[in-house]
Design a protein around this nucleic acid. Structure first.
Lengths: 222, 222
DNA sequence: TGCTGTCCGGCTGTCTGACAGGTTCACGCT
DNA sequence: AGCGTGAACCTGTCAGACAGCCGGACAGCA
């Protein structure tokens, strides 16, 4: 609590970046300035910027792609970083019971701001080709819906589940085949939430989770 | 993390360090080798080591002190779930969606040992008069059912929910009135799980949660 | 027009070498 | 014995360099 230790340049830059990301000033899906540019902006060397970015990546806020840049994939640190704690079977079994009612509540309680966030995430996903980045955005999409449910239990649990799933290699193996289909299903879910129909939102989410579950099954049993 | 994308040197070193720490090969409280030494060991430059260490620090595994070195402060990533942050409304809203299917699975998958545990807990509850102790036993009862579901997601979530509920004063206020009724409902749940009927188990759990929810409502609205 | 191959500028990944400042400890002086 | 001081080691930061990846511009070809 006491700021006895003056923070290093790398920590200071990390805090600044994290604040920008968590406040939404740098939206999910957007690209950060290049390391050289950031170094100039903050008046530090590129090493310091790289260490700060490495912290962001370790917390799951960003992903960095060689030759392209660093991209924001989450606006806040996930609750549960104990990856691989849950098996794929447990996850696919439990998800519908939590995400479907959460989608229904989201349709009834979502704010305009949350709808905007969902639209931005979907737009970013539509043009995303890198599997790992797409999975991270997908995770954010589901987490945002859970947040829109207005129920912190759902919000927290979905964040845990999606986080665990995102780090299972089966998920990445599945993405190439499912990406386009998922994008369409996501559109249906968003449309239902936009219209405020809880029943439609539940149905759309159920259809999506069912399709994803079947795709995962076929991979697990192959 | 993912075997698909070839990992950078910094990620590889980070994974190695994390594995060493989580496996306990490098005990908590110990000091890591200096950055220069690690660089030599792993055959990479000091920059790479620093980025890997920065990742460990971001996850809370290590702390680095200028002039002294880097020290291990945790053997696993902290599960920073903010318990007790859930409102009574959120909890009663979410519980049925999780505990009812968990009860159904428990009926299909429970072992004899788990049934014994449930019987013992119920016996203890029947003679327990102290409200706080009874709430703790009740919490264990529900957690045990979740564990019997064989699904670690349900097990984890129910543990969180019950933990949060147990710390709400409304729960204690309700117990005096509900204790006897709950004992009977618990008997129904246990009987259904013993018989192996998932349908009956879900119905019994639903009835129990509904009764508890109504009792909580009446207290919240008084 | 439409396709393709090449090249260039921008970006990340990594390395090297350097210097400032914090920490520890043993040596030597008082 | 007590104490100061400097050497040795450590982290924090910087500057510069180069390879490899990526996207787009552009010219050439069908």
């Amino acid at each position: 609590m006491v700021p006895l230790a003056r923070l290093s340049a790398a920590e200071a830059v990390f805090n600044a970046l994290r604040a920008d990301i968590e406040s939404g000033m740098v939206p999910v899906g957007s690209k950060l300035s290049s390391e050289a540019t950031l170094a100039q902006q903050y008046g530090v060397s590129r090493s310091v910027i790289r260490e700060a970015l490495r912290s962001c990546t370790a917390l799951g806020l960003t992903v960095t792609k060689t030759g392209k840049g660093t991209f924001v994939v989450a606006s806040k640190v996930a609750n549960d970083l104990t990856l691989g704690q849950y098996s794929a079977r447990d996850l696919t079994e439990a998800r519908p019971h939590i995400e479907i009612p959460a989608a229904g509540l989201a349709a009834e309680r979502r704010t305009e701001e949350e709808l905007d966030n969902l639209r931005h995430i979907m737009a970013a996903m539509a043009t995303e080709t890198d599997p790992e980045s797409w999975v991270a955005l997908d995770s954010t999409f589901h987490a945002t819906i859970a947040r829109a449910s207005g129920n912190k239990v759902f919000e927290s649990v979905v964040a845990d589940i999606r986080d665990a799933l995102a780090h299972q290699s089966e998920t990445l193996n599945m993405v190439a085949d499912r990406q386009h289909a998922s994008d369409i299903e996501h559109q249906d879910i968003l449309a239902a939430i936009e219209s405020g129909s809880a029943e439609n939102a539940r149905t759309a989410m159920a259809r999506h989770l069912d399709a994803v579950g079947q795709a995962l099954d076929s991979i697990l049993n192959s």
